[in-house]
């Protein structure tokens, strides 16, 4: 649906200073029908990449292209995109209804259809009650909801969102995530940036992860998680004492008031299960040791930040 090929973008902070590379030889593709998360720390180059995709800024080199079915020229492509920037400001003198009508008209959607879609999305996004209020009286969460609604008015094929979940309470985040999933289930391609990894991990089937403007990972979420899954098993059990055989099985083990927690190598799995059956130990947890997406992207195993495990 959208393809970045060796995209590089640099900015100059000052006329006399050397340009700073913000997006560095970035290549990835968001496939049609994907629900793709765009991850990276603050300042990694996510927003710059999105702005380049929408032609708000020009790239130094490389190419950004859309699927031919999106349109022959960028004007046609834009009519198929729903974009919502991070922390936008809306015209405060307008009511929510006027604002949506205005954007709908700019999109050349007949007024009756705009009204119909406003009512539908207004209910789903729980913002319909404030349609007739001036935008200057909206809270941050209400602005986020109104902006998201305006993004969906023209039923875009590709939705690009920049940090759509920031500024929302947990309930609002869940509602947004549910809507993103349901849109995606109906065939809308969704590409959204976030620095909240757990949200992305929860709903996205594919990922683009950038670090200091360069690609760190692009592909299926599950593949990245599996690639970082350890071959060791993580077990927890309760027992009055630890048999000598169990002591030998464990790579490492900790004990606290009769509860044992430790790791066993994959080839000792059968021995462990057999020994559990032979003793009166109560098994509490048994599974492959699996890192969360956040740990893979931002953290090392010992918890220190920004030491990324894995590679391109």
């Amino acid at each position: 649906m959208i393809k970045f090929e060796n995209v590089t973008k640099s900015f100059k902070d000052d006329f006399w200073k050397k340009p700073k590379v913000v997006v560095d030889d970035l290549s990835f593709e968001v496939k049609e029908g994907a629900l793709c998360g765009f991850l990276g720390a603050n300042g990694a180059g996510k927003t710059t990449s999105i702005k380049a995709a929408l032609s708000f800024i020009k790239i130094d080199s490389g190419k950004i292209s859309y699927h031919p079915s999106m349109g022959k020229n960028f004007n046609e492509v834009r009519s198929q995109i729903g974009y919502f920037p991070e922390g936008p400001y809306f015209y405060p003198h307008m009511t929510g209804r006027d604002f949506c009508m205005y954007l709908g008209q700019l999109q050349s959607i007949p007024k009756n259809i705009v009204k119909e879609r406003m009512n539908y999305w207004g209910e789903r996004l729980a913002i319909a009650f404030a349609f007739d209020r001036k935008i200057r009286g909206y809270s941050k969460g209400m602005l986020q909801r109104l902006g998201f609604l305006s993004t969906l008015l023209h039923e875009p094929r590709l939705v690009i969102l920049d940090e759509p979940l920031s500024g929302l309470d947990p309930l609002g985040r869940k509602e947004f995530k549910d809507i993103l999933v349901s849109l995606n289930n109906k065939g809308t391609t969704i590409f959204f940036s976030s620095h909240i990894v757990s949200d992305v991990e929860e709903i996205c089937d594919s990922l683009v992860v950038i670090r200091s403007g360069a690609l760190f990972y692009s592909g299926k979420t599950e593949k990245l998680l599996n690639s970082q899954t350890s071959k060791d098993y993580r077990v927890a059990f309760h027992s009055k004492e630890l048999s000598p055989r169990l002591k030998d099985i464990f790579k490492q083990i900790q004990e606290r008031e009769g509860f044992y927690l430790g790791n066993i190598p994959n080839d000792k799995k059968s021995d462990f299960i057999e020994e559990m059956n032979n003793t009166n130990a109560e098994l509490i947890e048994f599974g492959l040791e699996r890192l969360s997406l956040e740990e893979i992207i931002y953290l090392t195993k010992d918890g220190s930040r920004d030491e990324v495990r894995g590679g391109k």
Partner: peptide
Amino acid sequence: SSRTLYMIISRPVS
């Protein structure tokens, strides 16, 4: 500066 522009020119408005 207030990014309202993005909401407009991301649509088919030259």
